[in-house]
Amino acid sequence: MPSELEDLVEFLHHGNTQVRQIAVENLVPYSTSQPSIFKRHQLLPINDLKLLIRDYPQIAKNVLTILVNLSGEDGEVRAKLVSDDEFLESLLKRVTDTKEPHADLQCMLLANLSKSPSIPKLLSLQRPVPTPLSTSPFAIDQLLDCFVKGSGGSYNKDANHDYLSYLFADLAKHAAGREYFLTPRKEDEGIVPLSKIIVFTEHGSAIRRRGVANTIKNVCFDVPAHPRLLYSDTDLETPDDVTNPIGLLPYILLPLMGSESFSDEDTEGMLDECQLLPPDKERDNQPDIMATHLESLLLLTTEKESRARLRAVKTYPIVRECHLQVEDEGVREGCDRLVQVLMREEGMKVSEGEGEGGDGEGRVEEVDEDEDEDEQIVDVV
């Protein structure tokens, strides 16, 4: 005989609104404690839940909570949801709706679905243009506009759309995603998508900062794009062959900086944005986000020319002070790895040493230039 819980799942497609509401309210805790109950009969309950996100607001809220919980850990559930284009359209319609009361739950669900290997389909998916939010027919452009314009509830008073940054980070793990973030969009007056989100590295929301930081890090795996990332269109030093420069550096260096002062020698050549900071300037208060920025900088040391650029803008003094001021081991380890690359001479490599007190200074050895270049390919996961 079916258990009471199995009977409750059967009520998800009941014709009476009150019965459905009672069912989903009582099923919410089981989406974490007994998720298998929703996978009965070849995931038939998931089909019911997909339809119920269109139901009355309170029912939809509980259904979204259940789907967020289920999709966070279960790849089979994610695949079921991502493969349904009609369901994706229903999600996108609500995320981009300025009056949707549960848009942030929709964003959380999209962030979970981004773990699916099929999520790059969003990069080419077209749908109706949600004016005045966006002018592009591409779903990814609309989501990016929603993220930018929705900060702090400025687009939808009930949502901040911060969790979309996690979606962007996962998309940037794919080559097609990195290409999207680095390519000027004709649908958006030639703006490079990455340039629209890097401005949030010092935003008040840790969720938004974390997602943006990881998006940047994943984009940095595109080594040929490093010159564009390292220079801006206002830099006098920008090489002539660098087109569509993005100017990433201030946005990943400033979160590592506090209000400390630097010597004239240290500041000479430092980016303007990193000089004369206010006395109340604070570093990012999330060590994992700082560590992610340090990983991005390490990835940017892959090429000799990139290392020269990082040295020229005085990255080392900034990282040195970060190491001195932050006690988190992950941040200090990231500082150590980066400093070992920046402070060695080209044609030399740093071997791991056993300095007194574990200072990590190591030994300097001569190597062939070709070997040195290979050493720079850093795999950060």
Rank of each mutant, 00 (worst) to 15 (best):
K39T: 06
S90H: 11
P117N: 07
L125C: 00
E76G: 11
H14D: 15
D264S: 13
N62G: 14
P278S: 00
G75E: 15
V199P: 01
Q21S: 14
S33A: 04
P255R: 05
E356P: 01
E179F: 07
N112K: 05
I59G: 09
D84G: 09
D264L: 11
V364C: 10
T98A: 10
K349S: 15
L294M: 10
H41M: 03
S296G: 07
D370R: 13
V367E: 06
Y155T: 06
L297M: 15
G150Y: 07
L110H: 08
L81A: 03
C220P: 02
P132G: 08
V192P: 11
F200R: 06
P101V: 09
I289W: 06
I59W: 03
V219H: 06
K39N: 05
D104V: 03
P227T: 15
Q286H: 02
F87H: 02
R54T: 09
A176Y: 04
S296T: 00
R309S: 04
E6K: 14
D170A: 00
R228L: 08
E268P: 01
S114R: 05
R363S: 15
S195V: 03
D170G: 02
S151G: 00
E273G: 12
D374Y: 11
D74E: 03
L298A: 14
T238S: 02
D284W: 08
R337Q: 12
M108W: 05
E89Q: 11
V192M: 08
L91F: 08
F221R: 11
S306L: 09
E321L: 07
N62Q: 08
Q340G: 15
L52I: 02
L249Y: 11
Q42I: 01
D280Y: 15
D368T: 13
L297C: 11
E10K: 13
K314F: 00
G347V: 00
K39D: 00
F138W: 12
M343R: 14
G190P: 09
R344G: 14
T302N: 13
L254E: 10
H14V: 01
G360M: 06
V212W: 02
E329F: 09
E282S: 05
G330A: 13
F138M: 05
K149P: 03
V28N: 04
D97W: 09
L167T: 15
L254H: 01
G360P: 07
H203M: 03
C146S: 05
L256F: 14
A175F: 01
D266I: 00
P120C: 04
